[in-house]
Design a protein around this nucleic acid. Sequence first.
DNA 1: TTCCGACAGTGGGGTCGCAAT
DNA 2: ATTGCGACCCCACTATCGGAA
Length: 508
Amino acid sequence: MLLNEVVAATEAVGATPSRLAKIAALAALLRGLDPGEVRPAIGFLTASPRQGRLGVGWRSLSALETPHAAGPSLTILDVDAALDRLAAADGQGSVAARRGELTLLSERATSAEWDFVARVMLGELRTGALEGVLLDAIAKAAERDASAVRRAAMLSGDLGATAELALTGSADELEAVGLVVGRPVMPMLASTAGSATEAVQALGGTASVEYKLDGARIQVHRDGDDVRVYTRSLADITHRVPEIVEAVRELPAERVILDGETLSLDEDGGPRPFQDTMARFGSESGAAVVLRPWFFDILHLDGRDLLDEPLSTRLEVLERVAGASRMPGIVTDDADRAEEFSREALAAGHEGVMVKGVESAYAAGRRGKSWLKVKPVLTFDLVVLAVEWGSGRRTGQLSNLHLGARDPEGAYGEPGGFVMVGKTFKGLTDALLRWQTEHFPTIETHRSSSAVHVRPETVVEIAIDGVQRSTRYPGGVALRFARVKGYRPDKSPGDADTIGSLRTLLRG
DNA sequence: TTCCGACAGTGGGGTCGCAAT
DNA sequence: ATTGCGACCCCACTATCGGAA
């Protein structure tokens, strides 16, 4: 199939707000694919090429200046082969080799095709259809049950393989896709609750309340001595974490799939900051810091699949297997007891708690309401220093706020000035975006191509999870997960919180 | 008819490895 | 040695469609 047909279908998908129309357009496209084109096409449509890491980003694409072809000639398989060569070049030294490949591809593509391929490589198609919509389209094209397609995709962790199987295999083959030790599963995700009490009440009965650690999600598969460790996005990082492999080899289980979190501890046994855990977790060459695993769920044990069992059953099995690596937790229907446990978690230096319904199955790949995370929220009054122009549906609107804390002593600048501590675009409603776009130009001091700088007069209440040390910002701290709660026209810049009060959050 | 679950989009900070400077 | 880029950890929130109630 010509790439041009994929581009045309994608344009149709992007042009309609209706999900049913998107699904219909995608299903029609999928039906026309040859079997060998399914996996590459799914990679294009989700803007995550099957080749994985390409080493091509916005910078290298914008540096290209090549003319495009007048008419379409590229096929899906042509582009797939070009991406193969790009992926092979990544990590092999030459930027020039990648640029050569990109230039060749660019010259063979029409401008519409190149625009599409560039968005695929950047991982942002922005047509309103990703995995969720595409799953339904695959089911429609293959005339299979959407829930069967979804289940196969989540359990295999591979949408492309699932699409190929759905479109070319039998319904029985699709149904037969299940858990395999050694093949990672899409992890179950959580929603947010305001408090432990609220979470217990929302679950309406007995809940498992567990520590929520500020580390990295891990999924561990063990088959005898063969242990594999995967990240949340299913990357195999076994070679980076030998200490986790060793810990899992000690467990009393031959074949097991465990879900958990890893982080590193300080000398006193308390959790290190997330940044320290990530420095170790992300490093190929082992460091002084040691990672420890904590497991909160078990999906398989010695031939028995557990993910459709209720959480209460899975926890009983986990109790026998995980030993000291079991995530601390309690089972209770008492909201007060849950609150008490939450306070214990915070006192131990952890992020908060997870509250889970004990009747719930393990819903791979879903962000349901049966897992609720509870973390304390801090709020600060900060001052807007500048606002960046938005992109996509926020094009033409002032969106991303530069936030400053008051610096009365001038420790990081002029006395009485403001020190930038982060940005945020979150929490803004359409009405607030319109207001920002009208308001900030009226107090503009100057502007750059990307932002309008303003007099530091506007106070905004910002919610954060905490702060982290920063080399980017002059005050040495950056906000973590900042979002707008609301503007505070009742407050003046002199009422804003200080850099000192943010810095005290760094320790303890 | 109204409600609400699921999705997609819009980006945030920090860390690494790697190649170019 | 330093810097810039790309990938990938962590992540919150709003708007919207369409099925569920």
